[in-house]
Amino acid sequence: MGAQIHNSATVLPKTRKLQRSSIRLSVKAVEDCLSKEGLDPEEIGIFINTGIFRDKHIGEPAIAALIHGDLSINCGSPFCFDLNNGGVGYINALEVCSNLIENGESKAGIVVSGDAIPRRIDRWVFPYSPAATAITLKKGPAESGFIEFFHKSFPEHADLQTSALRWDKPDFRKSNRHILKINQDKEYAQQCFESAKITLTEFFSNHKLSAADFDLLLYSHSPKQFGIKLKTWLRLPKDSYGKILDGGEIHTAGLGYSLSRAMTSSKFHQARNVLFIAVGSGIQVSLAWYRNLHQHE
């Protein structure tokens, strides 16, 4: 089995300064996450960022290196890099981080994911709620941690959600500019749900399981209607996912936000089997099956 979750923290900006810096937001999320005892920050050897919309659309160095460099906590010299894959990048990074820990590359790791308005001019087109989330993983007992990761893609729906920094002519100018374009088709949420249904059915069938075998299900916030559709299909209780914020959905930090809420409310610790469900552009669906080791076990 893979690495254990040590802690998770999510930051939602209260000031405009934080709304416009994924780096500052992510630094705060990492610092909050590391404030919990039980993990020596110097043991962190892997530091992955999965956020997409970053300050000024910086290309290099990796945003993970910029976040780590701005921490007020001494956190050693981990290997920092960015891993991007839309809404499923967070689960991809959990798998990579967990695997690197299992393979002995490090004792512990951090996955941080933050999106904010990259530039002032992008505020008109950025549809998401700025947010950042961080999760710490560490080597744990063999009976607990991430049991399996499962991925499926549905490329026939690749055009339903796209984003790019395009070199195009804006309507109000005569010459080209770097323009952030984020397009989400009205069919996207429905197709994400249909794709998730197929993926979950196959996953449950592979393991002869059903949703009822999981004590806690956490899922993507984006697209906005996805969680509602999934919740209805799986007959989940109302509070089984994080609140959608006014003004927009949380993008790559959404799943981490749900985890942070579940950890704060102790629901995560009470659950033995946890299922993470992420959907993202492609359409891609990624699942992560996590098992908590309870103290009495």
Binding site: N84, W167, G280
Partner: peptide, 13 residues
Amino acid sequence: GHHQQYEPSMSFV
């Protein structure tokens, strides 16, 4: 040309 791809990811395309 010079459109920086974000989503879907480059690996996906």
